[in-house]
Simulated scan of single mutants.
Amino acid sequence: MNPVALRAGLARGWIEFKQTWTNLDDVIGQLVFVALFLGTLFFMRNATLPGTSFSLGAATVPGVLGAGVVFNGLTGAAGYLAVDREDGTLLRAKATPNGMLGYLVGKTTALSLAQLTSMAAVLIPCLFAFSALAPDGVWSYLHLLGVLLIGMAATMPIGAALGSLANSARSIGLITLPVMAMGAISGIFYPVTALPEWVQGVAQVFPMYWLGLGMRSALLPDSAVVVEIGQSWRPLPTLAVLVAWAVIGLALAPVLLRRMARREAGSSVAERRQKAMQRVG
C-alpha cells in the first residue's frame, strides 16, 4: 500500500470522524440512537431469560452491540459511497493520484472510529447498570474487541459493495429495510430459540446473528448459554461464518468499486445533480 495514500487516508478519516462531533444534527442523531437503546434496556432490567434468573436486559446488551456493528457497517459504508458519488467527491478522488486508495482508507478509518464510539456509548452505561456483564474482566474485553474487529471486516466491505451499486443516496433505504428485517430474526431483543426452526436457519445465514452470539459469549456468564441454539456459544461456527462474509465482501468490494470508479465522469455527476434539482423543483 502506498504510504502517502495511507497517511492521507488516515488523516482524512480522523478529520471526518471529528466533524461528526462538531455537527449538531449528527450529535443529536447519535444521542437519540443511544438513548433509545438504553431506554429499552432499562425497561427490560427486571425481566429474566426464560428458564433462568439472569436479567433479560443484560442478555440483550451484546445483541444490541452486534446489531449496531452490522447496521453501521452495511448502511454506513453504503451511505457514504452513495452520497459521495452523487456530490462528486468520488470523481475528485479518482482524479487525484492515489486518491481512491486514500478515500477508501479514510472512510474505513472514520467508520471504524464511529463504530468504537457507538459501542462505548452503549456499553459503558450498561456495565454500571448490569453487574453480570463482562464476568471475566480483561479477557471479556479482549474477546469483545476480537469479535468487533472481525465483525467490521465481515460487514464494511459488503456495505461498500452495496453502496457501489446504489444509484443515489435515496436508494439506501433499499439496504436499510433488509437490515432491519435481519435484526427482527437475529435474537437481538429475545432468544432466537423462541422463533420457529426455519426462521432460526435463515437468521444463521447472515452475520447479525453470529455477531450477537459472539458478543454474548464475550460479555455474558456461561449460565446464559442455556437459551442459545444447542446450548453452546459455538465459537468455531461463529468465526467461520464471519470470516466467510469477510472473504465475500473483500472479494466483491474491490471489483465493484473499480467498476464504479471507471464509470464516474463529470457528465454523470452533472446528470445526477440535474435529476436531483428536478425532484426538488
Rank of each mutant, 00 (worst) to 15 (best):
G68V: 06
A110M: 15
A240P: 03
L74R: 01
S140R: 07
A224M: 07
V225A: 15
F54D: 06
A181C: 00
P62I: 05
S168C: 05
S232N: 10
W14I: 14
G76E: 06
V4P: 00
S168F: 08
I15H: 14
R170N: 13
G79C: 10
W139F: 12
T176H: 10
P97D: 03
A240K: 03
I248A: 14
P207C: 07
T96M: 12
P191F: 10
G163M: 07
A78I: 08
L10E: 05
A253T: 07
S186E: 06
T117K: 11
D222T: 09
K18I: 08
V241L: 04
P50M: 07
P207F: 07
I124M: 11
T48G: 05
M100N: 08
F37D: 04
L213V: 02
L113C: 08
A181V: 11
E86G: 12
L257T: 05
L127Q: 08
S131E: 15
W21P: 06
T109A: 04
L250F: 13
A77M: 12
M100Y: 05
T238P: 01
T108Y: 10
L49D: 12
M100R: 04
A82M: 09
L24T: 13
F42C: 05
T20E: 12
V61S: 08
N98D: 13
M44H: 04
P254V: 00
A8M: 10
R263F: 02
G173N: 10
N72Q: 14
A246P: 00
E86L: 02
A184S: 14
V122H: 02
G66L: 07
V69R: 02
W21C: 04
P3W: 09
Y190E: 11
L250I: 07
A82W: 01
A35L: 12
L219Q: 07
A261G: 06
A129E: 05
L56F: 07
G212S: 10
S223E: 15
E264T: 02
G63N: 10
Y141D: 00
G51W: 10
P196L: 09
D222Y: 01
T109G: 07
G146D: 06
A47D: 12
A276E: 14
T52F: 04
V226Y: 03
A82E: 08
V4A: 14
N98W: 04
R263K: 13
P178G: 05
L123M: 02
A5T: 01
N23Q: 13
L10K: 06
P50E: 10
N167L: 13
T40I: 14
L81Y: 09
W210I: 04
L145S: 14
L242Y: 04
L65R: 06
R12W: 11
L81E: 03
G214S: 08
Q30V: 10
L242C: 01
A253H: 02
T60E: 11
W210N: 01
V280I: 14
V205S: 02
W198E: 09
L49Q: 12
A169N: 12
A276D: 11
A253S: 13
